[in-house]
Simulated assay, not measured.
Amino acid sequence: MITLLEALVEGADGTYASKQDLRNLEHAMFSWAERKEAYLAVQTNETSIIDRAMTLMQASKTTPNDNAIDKARIVRCRRDLTLALRYYALGMLLQDEEMLKDRFLYWQKNVLQAMGLHHYHGVQFVFESICTELPKEQANLFKPYFKLGEQTIMSN
């Protein structure tokens, strides 16, 4: 929504907003209540979403099956997944893919590349958890943002 409002202000500099800009804003305003409810549901269920994501990640074939994973790594992973969940939720609430990319995805991509992780699937487990913990209509609101995240992080 921030990017949408910025585009509207830029496009209407010294003139009136275009009909398309007004339609886009109207659509964003129309879906606000639904997005706000999904955001609040994530906030309320954050612990269970992250717990489920951690369980899915530890049981998956995409993470090392190392019983000696230290508690510090688990704490960091939990913290990172929580941060990701909060940014994805904010991106969905504001209906703002550019904000999500600028404030989180590019940073996460750089961190993962620096760590040598080229096939990281952690946020995939967060999305799976959202799909389990929230009603389908609310979970579906997150789908384009997690898809964007996967595309951004896995791109070169």
Results as ranks from 00 to 15, higher is better:
residue 1 M to Q: 02
residue 2 I to P: 03
residue 4 L to K: 13
residue 5 L to M: 14
residue 6 E to K: 15
residue 7 A to H: 15
residue 11 G to D: 04
residue 14 G to W: 02
residue 16 Y to A: 12
residue 17 A to S: 15
residue 18 S to A: 12
residue 19 K to G: 10
residue 21 D to F: 02
residue 21 D to H: 10
residue 21 D to V: 01
residue 23 R to G: 03
residue 26 E to M: 09
residue 30 F to Y: 06
residue 34 E to F: 03
residue 34 E to T: 07
residue 35 R to C: 02
residue 40 L to M: 13
residue 42 V to N: 05
residue 43 Q to C: 09
residue 49 I to W: 10
residue 50 I to T: 06
residue 51 D to S: 14
residue 52 R to D: 11
residue 52 R to V: 02
residue 53 A to N: 08
residue 56 L to N: 01
residue 57 M to D: 07
residue 59 A to S: 13
residue 62 T to D: 09
residue 64 P to K: 07
residue 64 P to S: 02
residue 65 N to M: 00
residue 66 D to C: 00
residue 68 A to L: 03
residue 69 I to D: 00
residue 76 R to E: 11
residue 77 C to N: 10
residue 77 C to F: 10
residue 79 R to T: 13
residue 81 L to E: 01
residue 83 L to H: 06
residue 87 Y to L: 09
residue 92 M to A: 05
residue 93 L to T: 09
residue 102 D to F: 08
residue 103 R to E: 05
residue 109 K to W: 09
residue 113 Q to A: 11
residue 114 A to Y: 12
residue 114 A to L: 13
residue 115 M to S: 12
residue 121 H to G: 04
residue 121 H to A: 07
residue 123 V to G: 00
residue 125 F to W: 03
residue 126 V to S: 03
residue 128 E to H: 02
residue 129 S to T: 02
residue 131 C to H: 09
residue 132 T to D: 04
residue 133 E to L: 09
residue 134 L to M: 07
residue 135 P to L: 11
residue 136 K to S: 13
residue 139 A to T: 05
residue 139 A to I: 06
residue 143 K to P: 01
residue 143 K to R: 11
residue 151 Q to R: 08
residue 153 I to W: 01
residue 156 N to A: 11
